[in-house]
Design a protein around this nucleic acid. Structure first.
Length: 545
RNA sequence: GCAUCGGUAGCUCAAUUGGAUAGAGCUUCUGACUUCGGAUCAGAAGGUUGGGGGUUCGAGUCCCUCCCGAUGCACCA
């Protein structure tokens, strides 16, 4: 079809011409022209069966590793020290983790790096709070809550009284100049925060190769700014240092220009504040240079929310001017905001954000209710474990399923739904397959044993399921190409659906020997793809639920 | 004002990037065998894809225009 467009030919005629010159009889039963000029290739059942057999022997799982593995740095999660991780952090964490897992599966070298917010102006206020009104009991019982309280208290006080703000600035300067007491407190705050991060990441099953926070780049900032000035990329403006347009891009594509009242005006990117301290952009440039020099990646992926689009356009454009020779691909994988029911950034009724740990607790609790209802005879410990896997799976899947670029309204019920297009539906399909093997007393997988397997496909539901299995690799490639895990979610949901229909119509254990062997292979392969697919979404599977 | 993203069934979302009759879930209604797990399956109902124009074999998708919403646009990250 696209060929016809390109060559301005009649699609139907072109299809006929192509068909005349085509010989795919090795794989295809027949090729038909349909509709406006589509070529429908009818795959030979024997070809399909052979592909299933080779997969059953463990030779592949319907995808290929990348022919040219690349090094990819994935930057995601990025929580702030002294603040609780809230629902806003979940999308970056889950998205980044699933992208990293998928890239690894496809054979790429992946470096995950958590760019923790451990430096910046908030520490001035935090230090004032720590020194003047720290509650010793609270900091032990709920360190994050106490630090958050301190920050809010000083923040409110400094709005009312400029003297407090001045005090905070001075504490910050002391910290930046290496004051021993302030550095000690700062380290303590980081330590307390890291305990919280680790607890959450352990629950989510998320791991980082590196957690190089903003403070790590502190020693490099001065020279980065100096170099950019020396090269004429950045210059002083109103006391700060900023990057302006160099006029090489068309104005519409130039992130350093904006249109106002019909005129193009400068839209600079500040890399150093007028007080001499670096800001977000300056730190990000230093980070980018460090990553390039340290890991030599072919690609760097930033998973952050959509409000930072302009920021990253400016960072990337600045970097291109700074290192025009660098071939690295820079990708800002952004996602929409989580909104409250009033369509504004999400807050609870009391104005707080929902803590991530509370969300996870609630998910497990709701799943526990369901498990106990469906499975009252199972021992308590097992019910808890099932609830953990199902609850966390539901949350992750709910976050990965929608197109990442759209905002969504937060709702407990939606986030924690256990019916419909949800993780439990996929996990249930997997558990049913496990149950077949348990009941039948048969080994699940001829896979990997090199044993002889023979597949003979006849029933329509067998065919549909088989064809869908073959598409796994295409979906993985598309997911990595577009950084969209929802492609995989939809694929797995359809796979589970096809399996459910197969399960209804095609008895496995009671079938005749030939049929039974084929159907056991289909069960095995479906289970393997489901487990592999869920695993790279960061979702666990269960033999029983 | 300019820019980015979005507006699809009562609700929440898909639609392989321009392809075939726009698909799912939730909700509502109907049905499923002493059967491998009913967290399931089958069926019904529900649509002028925000409005209008254009491009072509073909448009939810691309272009123009208007309406509505979210977000960003100089020292927060």
């Amino acid at each position: 079809m696209s060929l016809a467009k390109e060559r301005k030919l009649n699609p139907r005629q072109l299809a006929t011409d192509v068909l005349a010159k085509l010989d795919v009889s090795e794989w295809c039963e027949k090729v038909e022209i349909a509709g406006a000029g589509f070529l429908n290739f009818h795959l030979k059942t024997s070809t399909l069966a052979k592909t299933l057999e080779s997969a059953a022997r463990g030779e592949h799982l319907f995808f290929e590793k990348a022919s040219q593995p690349r090094t990819v740095v994935v930057d995601f999660s990025s929580p702030n020290v002294a603040k609780p991780m809230h629902v806003g952090h979940i999308r970056s964490t889950i998205l980044g983790d699933s992208l990293a897992r998928t890239l690894r599966l496809l054979g790429h070298r992946v470096v995950t790096d958590n760019h923790i917010g451990d430096w910046g102006t908030q520490f001035g206020k935090l230090l004032v709070g720590w020194k003047t009104q720290l509650n010793a009991d609270a900091i032990l019982a709920d360190p994050i809550g106490e630090m958050e309280r301190l920050y809010k208290a000083v923040n409110a006080a400094s709005e009312a009284d400029p003297a407090v703000l001045e005090q905070a600035k001075q504490e910050l300067v002391k910290l930046q100049n290496g004051d021993e007491e302030n550095l000690g407190i700062w380290h303590e705050m980081i330590k307390l925060s890291e305990i919280q991060f680790k607890t959450i990441y352990d629950r989510l099953g998320v791991k980082f190769d590196y957690s190089l926070g903003e403070s790590f780049y502190n020693p490099m900032l001065k020279s980065v700014v100096q170099e950019l000035r020396d090269k004429g990329i950045a210059r002083e403006s109103e006391g700060a240092v900023a990057v302006f347009s160099d006029g090489t891009l068309p104005p519409k594509q130039d992130p350093f220009l904006k249109q106002e009242d019909g005129e193009w005006k400068p839209n600079p990117c500040l890399i150093q504040k007028s007080d001499g301290a670096a800001n977000y952009a300056g730190t990000d440039l230093a980070t980018l240079a460090y990553r390039l020099q340290t890991w030599h990646p072919a690609e760097i992926v930033y998973v952050t929310d959509g409000r930072q689009q302009l920021h990253f356009q400016q960072i990337f454009a600045t970097f291109r001017r700074w290192h025009p020779e660098a071939k690295v691909k820079l990708a800002h994988v952004w996602f929409g905001s989580i909104l409250g029911e009033d369509n504004k950034p999400f807050k609870t009724r009391s104005g707080e954000t929902v803590r991530l740990s509370n969300l996870l607790d609630e998910a497990e609790e709701r799943a526990y209710q369901v498990v106990s209802e469906k499975n009252p005879e199972a021992p308590e410990g097992q019910r808890r474990e099932i609830a953990r896997v199902v609850g966390l799976g539901a949350i992750k899947y709910a976050d990965l399923l929608p197109n990442r670029q759209s905002d969504y309204v937060f709702s407990w019920d939606k986030m924690l739904a256990l019916n419909g297009n949800t993780a439990p539906y996929l996990q249930y399909a997997y558990a049913r397959i496990s149950s077949i093997f348990r009941k039948g007393g048969v080994e699940s997988a001829p896979a990997g044993t090199g044993g002889r397997v023979s597949v003979t496909l006849t029933a329509p539901d067998e065919m549909t399921l088989s064809k869908h299995l073959l598409n796994f690799g295409l979906v993985l490639d598309a997911m990595v190409e577009e950084y969209r895990p929802n492609y995989l979610c939809n694929y797995l949901y359809e796979l589970a659906g096809h399996f459910a229909r197969f399960y209804e119509h095609c008895p496995v254990l009671k079938a005749e020997p030939t049929e039974r062997a084929t159907r056991l292979v289909l069960c095995t392969l479906t289970a393997l793809v489901l487990r592999q697919g869920l695993e790279i979404l960061g979702i666990e599977t269960l033999e029983q639920m």
